[in-house]
C-alpha cells in the first residue's frame, strides 16, 4: 500500500543535464507514451479503413450468391496478372496483422504504464465527470473484438467451427453459403451482434481519440470530431449487424 518518496530529502539540482540515449528514430519515438499513442492512432486509422471496407464488401450479400462469391474471387485476384493470384491479398493481410500486432502491443504497454502510474488505487469511490463507458472500457471492448476476430477467422476463413455443407466439406470459396450456414445458428448470430456493438463502442472513443493523439485539433473542425466518430461507429455497426439479422430473418439465404 505504501507509496515511497522517490528520493532522500536534500537539494534538487541538475535535473535537466542528463545526456539522452540515442536510439533509431522510430524506436525513439515509440519509446514514449505520446509516441505509442501515435502508433495507436495510425494503426487505428488503418484498421478502421479495413473494418469499413470489409463491411461494404459484405453488402454484396444482398445482391445474391453469385455477386458475393465473385467479390471473394475478385479480392484474390487483386492486381492480377501483375501479381500472381492471392499475393496482393496476402500483402494486405500482412499489413493488417502488423497493424493489429502494433495496436495491441502499444495498448498493452500503455496499460502497464498506466497501472504503474497509480499503484495504489483510490480507496473511495470515484465520481467520474466526463469519462464515459466507451473511454473507460477500451481495453475490454478491444479484447472482445480480438477474440471475436479469432472466432470469425475460425468460422468463415478456416471453417473449423462452421457447420459442414451438404457435400460434407468446408469449401472456402463458397463464401455466401458459409455465411448463411454460420448465422443460421442463433447463438453465433447473437455473439456476432454483441461483438459488433463492442466494436462500435471501441470505434466511438477510438475515432475521436485519434484526432487528439495525432494533434489534429482546430476550431474549424473540432465540433465535427465527435460526430465523425459516432458516424463511423454507427455505419460499421449497422452494416455488420444487418448480416446475421438478414440471415435469421430469411432475407439472405432464404
Amino acid at each position: 500500500m505504501a507509496q515511497v518518496l522517490e528520493s532522500q530529502r536534500g537539494p534538487v539540482t541538475g535535473t535537466a543535464v542528463a545526456k539522452k540515449k540515442r536510439r533509431p528514430f522510430l524506436l525513439d519515438l515509440y519509446s514514449t507514451a505520446v509516441g505509442k499513442k501515435y502508433v495507436m492512432a495510425l494503426t487505428g486509422i488503418g484498421l478502421i479503413g479495413f473494418v469499413v471496407f470489409h463491411m461494404i464488401g459484405n453488402l454484396k450479400m444482398y445482391l445474391g450468391q453469385a455477386d458475393m462469391d465473385h467479390y471473394a474471387e475478385f479480392l484474390k485476384a487483386l492486381l492480377y496478372p501483375i501479381a500472381p493470384k492471392g499475393v496482393v491479398l496476402w500483402l494486405l493481410r500482412g499489413g493488417l496483422l502488423t497493424m493489429v500486432a502494433l495496436h495491441i502491443h502499444a495498448a498493452y504497454s500503455l496499460t502497464q504504464l498506466n497501472h504503474k502510474a497509480r499503484p495504489v488505487k483510490y480507496q473511495s469511490e470515484r465520481d467520474y465527470q466526463v469519462a464515459n463507458f466507451a473511454s473507460r472500457s477500451m481495453r475490454y471492448t478491444g479484447v472482445t473484438v480480438l477474440l471475436f476476430v479469432i472466432w470469425h477467422l475460425l468460422d468463415l476463413t478456416w471453417g473449423v467451427v462452421n457447420t459442414v455443407g451438404a457435400d460434407g466439406e468446408f469449401i472456402k470459396a463458397d463464401v455466401y453459403d458459409n455465411v448463411v450456414r454460420s448465422f443460421e445458428r442463433w447463438p453465433v448470430a447473437l455473439f456476432y451482434i454483441l461483438a459488433n456493438i463492442m466494436l462500435g463502442i471501441h470505434l466511438f472513443h477510438g475515432v475521436w481519440s485519434l484526432f487528439q493523439s495525432m494533434g489534429w485539433n482546430s476550431p474549424r473542425f473540432n465540433e465535427w470530431r465527435r460526430s465523425i466518430a459516432a458516424g463511423i461507429a454507427t455505419i460499421v455497426v449497422v452494416g455488420n449487424v444487418s448480416f446475421p439479422v438478414a440471415v435469421l430473418a430469411g432475407i439472405v439465404g432464404g
Partner: peptide, 13 residues
C-alpha cells in the same frame, strides 16, 4: 527552474 535544471541552483523545498 531553468537554473535548477542546469545545476546552477540547488533548491531546498
Amino acid at each position: 527552474a531553468r537554473q535548477i535544471g542546469l545545476g546552477g541552483v540547488r533548491l531546498f523545498n
